[in-house]
């Protein structure tokens, strides 16, 4: 094919984009090797196309998208901020708010201290603060100890009361040889039992609604006599 400058110009884009048939491409290349003007044009246009294809897109204004959205969809409706009844609670945990509270508290303390009122001075004196704290601790400890002691007494009484039915089922045995006077030194421990039982018996009688007189009779006697025991048995 007889390739000329007009054909080179007409098929230039096809040559650059590789769309020419192989024989046309060969004729194109052969012509540009012999024609300086065409070679220059090919170089210029190739360079221009390459440059344009590598040109970065121009950045639009960052506000453009917002403007377009506003123009098309209308202004954005923002939700009215209504904190509600408890909406303010999370704000307390905000560091700024906490810092503000601390600052206000510190200011109040400084103002009170600087005002010179004796109450403020004494109440804010570190020694008084320590003493007050110490006193409070001791009071708390004393209340606790008192409460524990009270519990112990109640428990003891309850345990004695609960052991009473067993004592009631057993017959009351009093040593016959024992006189009504002073107990023998060797029998000190056993002698306590009748005393305890003598206290429990009237209690059991109290359930029946009788025996109050016997109780009054027995209490002065540390060791009941055989006659009083028989009277008690008859009452039971």
């Amino acid at each position: 094919m007889d390739w000329n400058c007009t054909l080179t110009e007409e098929r230039l884009s096809d040559f650059i984009e590789g769309a020419l048939a192989p024989e046309d491409a060969a004729a194109f290349s052969a012509h540009t090797k012999t024609c300086a003007a065409c070679a220059k044009l090919v170089a210029q246009v190739s360079g221009l196309v390459s440059r344009m294809q590598h040109t970065a897109p121009v950045k639009e204004s960052p506000l453009l998208v917002g403007k377009i959205l506003e123009a098309t969809l209308g202004p954005r409706k923002r939700k009215p901020v209504s904190p509600g009844w408890f909406g303010w609670i999370p704000a307390i945990w905000h560091p700024r708010f906490a810092m503000g509270i601390v600052t206000v508290a510190a200011s109040v303390v400084i103002v009170l201290h600087a005002s010179g009122s004796p109450a403020a001075r004494t109440s804010l004196n570190p020694v008084n603060l320590v003493r007050g704290a110490n006193r409070q601790i001791h009071l708390t400890y004393a209340h606790g100890a008192k409460f524990v002691n009270g519990l112990r007494v109640v428990y003891e009484i309850q345990s004695r009361l609960s052991s009473q039915p067993e004592s009631m089922s057993e017959p009351i045995s009093v040593p016959a040889t024992r006189p009504s006077g002073e107990p023998q030194p060797g029998q000190k421990q056993p002698s306590a039992e009748p005393h305890e039982k003598s206290q429990t018996v009237p209690h059991s009688n109290r359930r029946d609604g009788r025996g109050g007189a016997e109780m009054a009779v027995m209490l002065p006697n540390r060791f009941p006599s055989s006659s009083s025991i028989s009277a008690l048995r008859s009452s039971l």
Binding site: S13, Q44, L48, R51
Partner: peptide, 20 residues
């Protein structure tokens, strides 16, 4: 497209812009 490219290349040459 072809005519536009050639014309633009010539314009840029007139403007003294060197091809890349």
């Amino acid at each position: 497209i072809n005519r536009g490219r050639i014309e633009l290349a010539r314009i840029l040459e007139e403007m003294g812009v060197r091809p890349a």
